[in-house]
Structures are given as C-alpha cells and as structure tokens.
Amino acid sequence: MLLIGGLVFLLLCVFGSFAASGGAIMPLVKSMPFELITIMGAGIGTFLMGNSMSDLKHVPGAFKTAIKGPDFGRQDYIDLLGLLFFFTRLAQTHGVMALESHIETPMESTAFAAYPKIRDNKRVRNLICDYLRMISMNMDDAFQFDEVMTRELSKNLKEDTHIAHSFQTLADALPALGIVAAVLGVIKTMGSISQPPEVLGEMIAGALVGTFLGVLLAYGIVGPLAVRINSVVEEDARYYDLIRVVFVAYLQGNPPQISVEIGRKDIPVPLMPSFEEIDTTISELAIG
C-alpha cells in the first residue's frame, strides 16, 4: 500500500503544483499520449532485448512482490525456528535416521503438518529437506556444509534480484529515451517553422514533455519500483538464510536450543522475536 500511496502522492505533487502555479495543462494533455508511446514503447523494447523469456515470466511476480511486500513476518520466523528446533532435537535424541520419514515424504510429515505455511512453500520445504538429507548422510563438516548452502542461497538471491536490476537498467535509460522523444518533437517543430509563434510555442512545449516524462518515469516511478523489489527480495532472503544459520550452529556442536538462539539473533531487528517467545514455542514441542 505504501507503494501505491507514494505513487499517488508523487503525481498529485508534480501535476498539482504545476496546475496551481498557473501552468498550462493543455500542452501536457495533448502531447503526453504520443510522448508516452514513444518513451514507453522504446523502454519496453530495450527491456525485451535485455532479458530472456524466463526472466520476462517473472515480471508479473515482481509487481506483485513490490505491492504485497515481504512474504514472511514475525510469526513466520517463530514457526521456522520451532520447526528447526524439532528436527535438530530429533536428530540429537534419536539419531539422524529418525529424520528420514519427515524429509522423504514432507507432505505427510506430522512435523511439517504443524506448520502448514512452511510445508506448502516449496522452496522453504525443499531447502530444509535437502540439507537435512545431507546431515542424515553424515555430512557433519560444518565448514563444508556452510559453504555449500551459502553458494546455493547466493545463487538463488542473484536470480531473484535479476528482475530488479533489469528495472533499474530501464530506469537509467528512460531519461535518454525522453530526450529522444523531445528531439523528435523539435524536428517536428522545425518542419513547421512557418507557423505563427503561438503554434510554434505549443509545439515546443509538447516536445519538452518528452524530457519531462523520461525523467519523471525514471526517478519517480521505475527507479523506486526497482529499489522496492530488490529490498523485498533481500528481506525474504534472510528467512532462507536462517535455515543455514541454525543448521551450521548445530553441526558446530551446539545443542538445539543454543542453535535456535544463534538463529534468532540473525533475524532482522523489526521481526526478531524475544527469547521468551522462542523458549515458549520450543518448550511446547513434543519430540517423539
């Protein structure tokens, strides 16, 4: 909602102040559709040239991400720590083979069933199961485990932020595309140099609308959109990284409760639950 509210406020301030100061709206209204077609058409063309088909499929999801915000909230972090505690405690008390029934058929697992949002999120579920499987296959070197998981998380983050970087590249190009539209308007004006001054003045004003729109779209809309997408993706990446932190802490020889506490300390401050909340959560878990 902040994204939409900010956009509305931006447009009201820009066009409202222009109208309130006595600016002529008609040249804007008459020229804007054609200038937008030139600028946005060229922008979309460059965007298509710079991305693959698989990248373009993520564009609708990127807009949804920007509007909706992060997928994971405070309770989601609490739930994840509770589930990770269950698995690490189960491995400690009953051995790593006790994990097999949960990681091979997670959709039927009673542990995952207690946290349906985690169970139904394919990426989170697979990340937990894949690395618990490595632990069950005696991959107990914490440094090697950390390196492998860090590489995967870094790869995923790079792929997830690619579309944001593409939007930023588009934002960088829009002012120049606005100049292209303005130059075309000037060429059109020069072709009508015999017209009366009032007509030429309106045509020149229309040409300048191209530069105005290019800068406004770049720094007022597309640029902030790219920043918003990137920040949301990076915030969600902290949720996935929490899995790595807890598992690595456990493999380093820490008890499950200490491993979870180490993970809690890595949660972003606005979302970090208190020690008491986590202690209450894990004390209610039954390890069969």
Rank of each mutant, 00 (worst) to 15 (best):
P255Q: 08
V232L: 11
T105W: 06
F9K: 09
D236T: 10
L200M: 13
M149G: 14
H102E: 11
L56P: 06
Q257W: 09
Y240D: 00
F275G: 00
P270R: 07
L99V: 09
S54D: 15
A182H: 13
K122R: 15
Q144L: 12
L80Y: 05
E104S: 15
V269P: 02
I118N: 00
P197M: 11
T93E: 12
R119T: 06
D120K: 04
I163D: 02
I187Y: 05
A218P: 06
L81Q: 14
S109N: 06
A226G: 04
S101I: 05
L251M: 12
A142D: 14
P197H: 04
V222P: 01
C129S: 11
A62M: 13
S109P: 11
L28F: 15
M272D: 04
Y219F: 10
E235N: 12
F212A: 06
I39G: 00
V209W: 02
I44R: 01
F72W: 06
V199Q: 15
V232P: 07
A24C: 01
A24N: 15
T150L: 13
F167W: 14
Y250L: 09
G223M: 06
N230G: 01
I193P: 04
P175K: 11
M1S: 10
A182F: 12
F212W: 05
S136L: 09
L170I: 07
M203E: 08
Y240A: 02
A24Q: 15
F143W: 07
D141T: 04
L217M: 15
Y131P: 09
L216T: 08
F72S: 02
D55Q: 08
G23T: 13
E277W: 06
E152S: 05
L271A: 00
D146K: 07
Y240W: 09
L56F: 03
T38D: 10
Q144C: 04
C13K: 10
M26I: 15
L213R: 02
L48C: 00
P27K: 12
G50E: 11
L7I: 09
G73A: 01
P60W: 13
M26Y: 14
L10R: 06
N156T: 08
P175I: 09
G185C: 10
G185P: 14
R125D: 00
P60M: 01
D241A: 06
Y77N: 01
V180Y: 00
R264K: 09
F247Q: 05
M190E: 08
L28I: 12
G5S: 08
K122T: 12
A113W: 05
G82S: 08
L28W: 14
E284S: 12
V245D: 01
I163W: 08
F34H: 15
D140N: 13
C13M: 14
V59T: 08
I67L: 12
Q252D: 13
V260S: 02
L127V: 04
N51D: 00
F247E: 04
Y239G: 01
V14Y: 11
K188W: 09
A173K: 09
L7H: 03
D241C: 00
S109E: 08
Y77Q: 03
K188P: 11
F72E: 01
I67V: 12
N230S: 12
N51Y: 02
I37C: 03
G185E: 13
I103C: 02
F85V: 04
K30L: 14
T93S: 10
